Amino acid sequence: MPFTIATWNINSVRLRAPIVRKLLEEEAPDVLCLQEIKTPVEKMPDFSDLGYGHVVARGQKGYNGVAILSKLPLEDLGDRDFADLGHARHVAARLENGVAIHNFYVPAGGDEPDRAKNVKFGQKLDYLTEMRDWFRDSRPEKAILVGDLNIAPREDDVWSHKQLLKIVSHTPIEVDHLGAVQEAGSWVDVTRKDIPEGLLYSWWSYRAKDWDAADKGRRLDHVWASSDIARSGHSSRVLRDARGWTQPSDHAPVFATFDL
Rank of each mutant, 00 (worst) to 15 (best):
35 Q>R: 12
156 D>Y: 07
72 L>T: 02
48 S>Y: 05
213 A>P: 08
139 R>Y: 08
210 D>G: 09
197 E>D: 05
231 R>S: 15
85 L>T: 09
112 E>Q: 08
75 E>Q: 06
84 D>N: 06
152 A>F: 09
150 N>G: 01
136 R>W: 09
99 V>P: 00
35 Q>F: 07
186 S>C: 12
4 T>N: 00
27 E>T: 04
252 A>K: 06
18 P>S: 06
122 G>I: 02
46 D>M: 00
196 P>W: 06
221 D>M: 11
173 I>M: 09
185 G>R: 09
123 Q>R: 07
226 S>A: 13
184 A>G: 11
154 R>L: 14
112 E>F: 06
88 A>D: 08
86 G>V: 15
157 D>S: 11
196 P>H: 06
123 Q>P: 01
142 K>G: 02
74 L>A: 02
166 K>S: 11
4 T>L: 01
220 L>N: 02
81 D>S: 06
205 S>H: 02
18 P>H: 05
9 N>C: 07
235 S>F: 06
112 E>Y: 07
250 D>R: 05
155 E>S: 11
182 Q>W: 10
200 L>Q: 14
20 V>F: 03
59 G>A: 10
33 C>V: 08
223 V>F: 03
114 D>A: 01
103 N>I: 01
157 D>N: 12
38 K>N: 07
166 K>C: 05
213 A>M: 12
126 D>R: 04
251 H>D: 03
223 V>L: 04
216 K>V: 07
201 Y>A: 13
131 M>A: 04
68 I>L: 08
61 K>T: 11
179 G>S: 10
152 A>P: 08
92 A>Y: 01
183 E>S: 15
83 A>D: 04
186 S>M: 13
135 F>Y: 10
131 M>F: 11
116 A>K: 13
206 Y>A: 05
66 V>Q: 07
97 N>L: 05
182 Q>E: 14
143 A>D: 03
131 M>K: 02
241 D>L: 10
57 A>T: 02
85 L>N: 07
59 G>T: 06
213 A>Y: 12
228 D>C: 12
92 A>I: 07
191 T>L: 15
132 R>G: 03
217 G>M: 08
